[in-house]
Amino acid sequence: MAKPKVATTSLCGCFGCHMSLLDIDDRILKLVELVDFDRSPINDIKKIEGQVDIGLIEGGCCNEENLAVLHEFRKHCKILISVGDCATNGGIPAMRNMVPLGECYEEAFLNGPTVVNPTGRIPDDPEIPLLLDKVYPCHEAVKIDYHLPGCPPSADTLWAALVALLEGREPELPYELLKYD
């Protein structure tokens, strides 16, 4: 029987949640026995290749590319999980949500104390994904089946949730594994 497939991605995140996944230590050997990885920064596969059982999303949505990737994951993943505070509530990047987008651009590219920008132009190359008006948690863009908050969620939290799902159980976390920091 084919092993369940897992895909992971980092949207507007810092890869800390992926680091936490690696922090499961030697259990990672067990994990590769239990599952196959589809698209993930861990194997550098860039596009989801088939149907995926569990998708792990790190990071919220700050630009149009994040949204496109999130929709790709939703389309191909049976179970989609928001991993970490950025995915569940926007996290640190969402601190810009209290400032209008125009002001953010002006501070970053025109008025900031360390800015050197002789052309006075705000970068607008079509290669650069357009920013959204705000940073959105993933569940405000697509349906998310489970949330694992934490900055990052601990390796034990990720492991407990993954194992529960692979065994067909609800990933109900014990008290000490549900943390927002």
Partner: peptide, 25 residues
């Protein structure tokens, strides 16, 4: 923003959310 709040871990609002098992609002 619990992830950098000095009161995190000692915050009653956060503690209630933990007690009720809230993973996301």
């Amino acid at each position: 923003f619990c992830m950098f709040c000095e009161r995190s871990g000692n915050c009653e609002l956060q503690a209630l959310a933990y007690r009720f098992g809230i993973t996301a609002p």
